[in-house]
């Protein structure tokens, strides 16, 4: 039984290889371009996808996707489609289009086209099966290409944004001559900790700072790695010639510091930011006044 079926399949393939079927399929899609494209755009609106775009925009985009889609089927190459998907993603991501929408519209197109194939070959089941066998792998590959292109572009955008946020999230502020404040808020991961240190050390040189207040009131917890980094930041600042005062140390973080073997007696800590700034001013006054008198 199985043997007979295999033989039959082989005969069919010989008679009509996939490329011939795809050619027939492409001709059908070209012929019905206007109608299928409109149907697709209608289904997109109906499914409430691409709500960030106007009707005209959806139709224009649908036309381009449709033509690229048919071309990919015809040439069985995906480079042009890939490039188009990337370009499309670049344009629509800033407008807030989500991954499920992009996957959704490609699957809708697949559905619209499959339905039209059903309608056309309704009377000839064997032919319908064969044409679907040729169409589906290609359609899957197209859906895959577009979705992956979109997700990759999105990840690239997210990476860029993360970098921008990271830069903004470690502000080194000069509140007074020779006095810097570094308020740290939120979660510190090792990468952010490293960036923070780098910015602070360069800030000390650029502003000729003598005292730095690092306020960690806004940091709920720290793992040992990051706590270690904080200690290194304090030590490196001292090597440049600046005194560091740490304020807002929570009991939990103090415990972490003790656990990793930090001698808290050696760290200059003050309860809150205000107290820290007051001590910093005393330090600066004590050092600055006599020099002014001397000169």
């Amino acid at each position: 039984m199985a043997e007979v079926q295999e033989e039959y399949a082989a005969v069919v393939l010989q008679a009509e290889p996939t490329s011939v079927l795809l050619r027939e399929l492409v001709a059908h899609l070209r012929q019905n371009r206007t109608q299928l494209r409109e149907e697709w755009a209608r289904r997109i609106t109906e499914a409430q996808l691409l709500t960030a775009m106007s009707k005209d925009e959806i139709f224009a985009e649908a036309t381009s996707v449709y033509d690229n889609y048919v071309e990919a089927l015809e040439t069985e190459t995906f480079e042009a489609l890939q490039a188009y998907a990337r370009n499309l993603s670049e344009r629509i991501i800033p407008r807030g289009v989500e991954t499920h929408e992009v996957v959704g519209i490609v699957l809708l197109l697949r559905d619209v086209l499959a339905r039209s194939l059903f309608a056309k070959y309704r009377s000839d089941h064997t032919k319908l099966n064969r044409i679907l066998d040729a169409y589906e792998p290609a359609a899957n590959r197209i859906a895959n290409t577009v979705a992956v292109g979109f997700v990759q572009e999105r990840e690239r955008v997210i990476r860029q944004q993360q970098e921008a946020i990271r830069e903004l999230s470690t502000p080194v502020l000069q509140v007074r001559e020779r006095l810097l404040i570094l308020p740290i808020i939120g979660v510190i991961d090792p990468q952010r900790a490293r960036q923070l240190t780098e910015q602070l050390l360069h800030g000390i040189r650029a502003n000729r700072a003598k005292v730095v207040v690092i306020d960690i009131t806004g940091v709920a917890a720290m793992d040992a790695t990051v706590a270690n980094h904080l200690v290194q930041t304090v030590e490196a600042s001292r090597l440049l010639g600046a005194t560091v005062i740490v304020t807002g140390l929570s009991p939990e973080i103090a415990q972490t510091l003790v656990n990793i073997g930090v001698d808290l007696g050696k760290m200059n800590t003050v309860g809150d930011l205000q107290g820290g700034i007051e001590q910093a001013e005393r330090l600066l006054g004590y050092k600055v006044v006599p020099i002014v008198e001397a000169s």
């Binding site: 780098e198 050390l201 000390i204 003598k210 490196a236 090597l239 440049l240 010639g241």
Partner: peptide
């Protein structure tokens, strides 16, 4: 001591304890 140099030093565990330092 330059910022990069200071950072590498503390990573190595070299903190120049009991040594006075100044910016310039």
């Amino acid at each position: 001591i330059q910022p990069e140099v200071a950072f590498a030093m503390v990573q190595l565990g070299l903190t120049l304890e009991n040594v006075a330092t100044a910016l310039d």
